[in-house]
């Protein structure tokens, strides 16, 4: 069988109007159905003819998955809400600017207009070995080509890897971890809420998925609790190009500051692991301090402890260390 790219293989399209209908369709076509949100990850797979679902379930028509509502003082964002809506939403901008900033760093305006928050956090990794259709662990094979001695792994993980060294590509994921968001997943049973940091799973747990969402399940909403509203935020993403690029390393941090003292902190780093990494030890370190240069330096060093580099990604250690340092410095 010869390889050919750039022509979507035929599929049957379903455009349900309710989550229940969508779940029923996924159940009916178990094993051959693909969930389509904004589609910007999906179409790449389809056009490469690597993923070839017989059935595509387009969630675009499901009203209940769209929009942002206020709930328990926090915000509940439907999984199909576009990133542009998230960026422009008044409450997101005023209270959770961390998320607005992160969402604004996604790809390009057109992609933000179409891409959804749910799709952004549930997207698949961009490891080019995997995306090229190689039979790697993540694709069900036996090999991590990216961890080979001379492999091209500049973008790959320095922590949290287990056989597979791919990184989580999502820009909003670190922000949502820092905001202590809850992801609602619906499947066969009753809806289940997952803490953001548990929502993303590493290859040690399941090498073929990046989140707890199993085939047949749907991520329906993201809830951001009130507690981190209007905290002091810091977001930064380092990338090769100013647009349409994934993070090399990014940091999202939220600090509760009272009288100059950090009373609570949540810091998450993207681009260094198969999931957004929450830095609990750093959070404990900075809590109770006033931030500042020396705490920041200590925080930076602590954050990269235990990092393991591959052939081409050593730079991620200073980059992550410096970004964490900056995040802490930003408090003062």
């Amino acid at each position: 069988m010869a390889i050919i790219r750039d022509m979507i293989p035929a599929f049957e399209l379903f455009q349900p109007n309710t989550v229940d209908d969508a779940l029923a369709l996924l159940d009916e076509h178990r094993g051959e159905a693909w969930v389509l949100a904004g589609g910007l990850d999906s179409y790449d797979w389809f056009k490469d003819r690597i993923k070839r679902p017989a059935v595509v379930v387009d969630l675009g028509g499901i009203e209940e998955l769209h929009g942002i509502t206020e709930e328990q003082g926090g915000l509940t964002i439907g999984a199909m809400t576009s990133l542009t809506e998230v960026v422009n939403h008044a409450r997101v901008q005023s209270d959770y600017s961390l998320l607005a900033t992160a969402a604004e760093h996604v790809a390009t305006p057109q992609i933000r207009n179409q891409g959804t928050l749910g799709g952004n956090i549930a997207q698949d990794t961009r490891c080019w070995y995997y995306r090229s259709g190689w039979p790697c662990y993540r694709a069900g094979g036996n090999t991590c080509y990216a961890a080979a001695p001379k492999a091209m792994n500049r973008e790959h993980a320095i922590m949290g890897a287990s056989r597979c060294v791919a990184v989580s590509p999502s820009d909003t994921a670190p922000a949502l971890v820092a905001l202590d968001a809850k992801m609602t997943v619906r499947g066969g049973g009753s809806p289940k809420d997952h803490d953001a940091e548990d929502f993303f799973i590493g290859p040690a747990i399941d090498i073929t998925r990046m989140t707890v969402v199993k085939p047949g399940d749907l991520l329906t909403a993201i809830h951001i609790p009130a507690v981190w509203a209007n905290a002091q935020f810091y977001y930064e993403k380092v990338r090769d190009r100013g647009s349409w690029d994934f993070q090399l390393v990014s940091v999202a941090a939220a600090f509760q500051v009272s009288g100059g003292t950090i009373t609570d902190a949540r810091i998450s780093v993207g681009g260094v692991a198969p999931y957004p990494v929450r830095l609990e030890r750093v959070e404990r370190l900075v809590t109770g301090t006033t931030g500042g240069e020396s705490v920041a330096n200590e925080a930076g060093e602590l954050s990269v402890q235990g990092a393991r580099v591959l052939r081409h990604n050593d730079y991620k250690i200073p980059m992550m260390r410096n970004l964490v340092r900056r995040a802490v410095r930003s408090v003062a």
Binding site: W128, Y129, S132, Y145, A148, K150, A151, M152, D240, R241, G242, S243, W244, D245
Partner: peptide, 25 residues
């Protein structure tokens, strides 16, 4: 311009990996 040395195949074979400069660069 990136090649896997073992298999000799290109990885920067899409615009987002080949990275021509855009408006923000």
């Amino acid at each position: 311009w990136v090649y896997d040395p073992k298999y000799g195949v290109a990885f920067a074979n899409r615009l987002y990996t080949a990275r021509p400069p855009g408006f923000l660069d």
